[in-house]
């Protein structure tokens, strides 16, 4: 059984005028100990997807339909109490900006111990020992001293380590990391990423890494999901997706990497920008920015099909596959 299976998930945002769809028909699965990445530009719905997994989308967002199953338990149907048991204990989250994630008026120790004590019956001293052990685990020097300090006394990288420690406290099955390195400077980024990778690998924790940085993704994730305007547009093994991207959007993303351009040349970019929720184009949402768009792309929504390398939602790929299939038939 899959550890986590999301199927046909629709998430809307409620506004006065209309219901805006933030996620449309999103499905994916996650196995125990597997590491997947969700990539896309800002506004693609990556973070919303991450938060929906623990049903923590900020108002006015809500899960409209679809299912999120943790083993055989349906998360979308859980009440707050049941959700509280899942959050932190089975599925833990790391947020983007470590400067904003820790409560400024509570000590590091308070914020670690409360997590343990709200899920398990354990006295303060034992909880403190666990917390200090985990701080040690994420390579924080003199954890006993840090335990009594406040967040503002720690650097950004250090705080992200504390957050990773706090996520590890209850040995969760899944860690959702929402751009865990974006707010950090480059040298620290690599360290934190390596730490996250090691921890997941050593403890068999499944990871959902949300990122817009394909470089980061290629180092960590085994499988990648590419999102555009609330849709999953491509999904497959990270290696395949990076070496042989099928969807024009994925190709564009890879082309935009600075490594793809010679020094001194203008960086490649995908023309245009991500549409807002209210102005989603008809047909394939990517068509206004797609160099290969046809009349069909403007009118119809492409299906999700397996291309032999990855699963893609694109007419271009579908047509090509059909052509091959026809030729095969002719040949036989």
């Amino acid at each position: 059984m899959n550890l986590l299976s999301v199927s046909n998930l629709h998430v809307n945002f409620h506004t006065k005028e209309q219901e805006l769809a933030a996620l449309i028909d999103v499905s994916f699965t996650l196995n125990r100990g597997e590491r997947i990445a969700i990539v896309g530009e800002s506004g693609a719905g990556k973070s919303v997807l991450g938060f929906s997994i623990v049903n923590l989308i900020g108002k006015p967002g809500y899960i409209d339909s679809g299912s999120i199953k943790l083993e055989n338990k349906e998360i979308t149907k859980m009440n707050l109490r049941q959700l509280q048991e899942v959050r932190g204990k089975r599925i833990a989250m790391i947020f983007q900006d470590p400067m904003m994630t820790l409560n400024p008026v509570l000590t590091i120790g308070d914020q670690l111990v409360e997590t343990i004590r709200s899920h398990t019956k354990i006295n303060y001293k034992d909880a403190r020992n666990i917390a200090i052990e985990k701080l040690h685990h994420v390579q924080i020097a003199s954890p006993e001293k840090r335990f009594d300090q406040y967040p503002h006394e720690l650097s950004g990288g250090m705080r992200q380590r504390v957050i990773i420690a706090s996520v590890l406290l209850l040995n969760p099955d899944i860690i959702i990391a929402d751009e865990p390195t974006t707010a950090l400077d480059v040298t620290i980024q690599a360290e934190i990423l390596q730490l996250l990778l090691t921890i997941c690998r050593d403890n068999g924790v499944a990871l959902v890494l949300i990122s817009h940085d394909l470089g980061v993704v290629s180092k960590v994730a085994e499988r990648t999901i590419v999102m555009y305007a609330g849709h999953v547009v491509e999904e497959g093994p990270t290696l395949e997706i990076i070496n042989d991207p099928q969807h024009p959007y994925t190709q564009g993303l890879l082309n935009a990497l600075p490594q793809m351009t010679l020094p001194g040349q203008r960086l490649n970019q995908i023309q245009g920008s991500m549409p807002s929720l209210a102005e989603r184009p008809s047909g394939c949402a990517f068509h206004p920015r797609c160099p290969y768009a046809t009349q069909k792309c403007r009118q119809e929504q492409p299906r999700f099909i397996f291309s032999g390398v990855s699963s893609v939602a694109c007419f271009l790929v579908e047509d090509m596959l059909n052509e091959f299939a026809d030729k095969d038939q002719e040949a036989s």
């Binding site: 509280q84 959050r87 932190g88 947020f95 409560n103 400024p104 008026v105 509570l106 409360e114 709200s118």
Partner: peptide, 30 residues
Amino acid sequence: LQSEYIRFAWSKGLSARRIYFIHALKNTML
């Protein structure tokens, strides 16, 4: 209540009471 650390507190599975009266109220009072 809109801030990231409150969202993080929710994601840790803390009780609503603890989030409102310890995490949020202390910051509110400043």
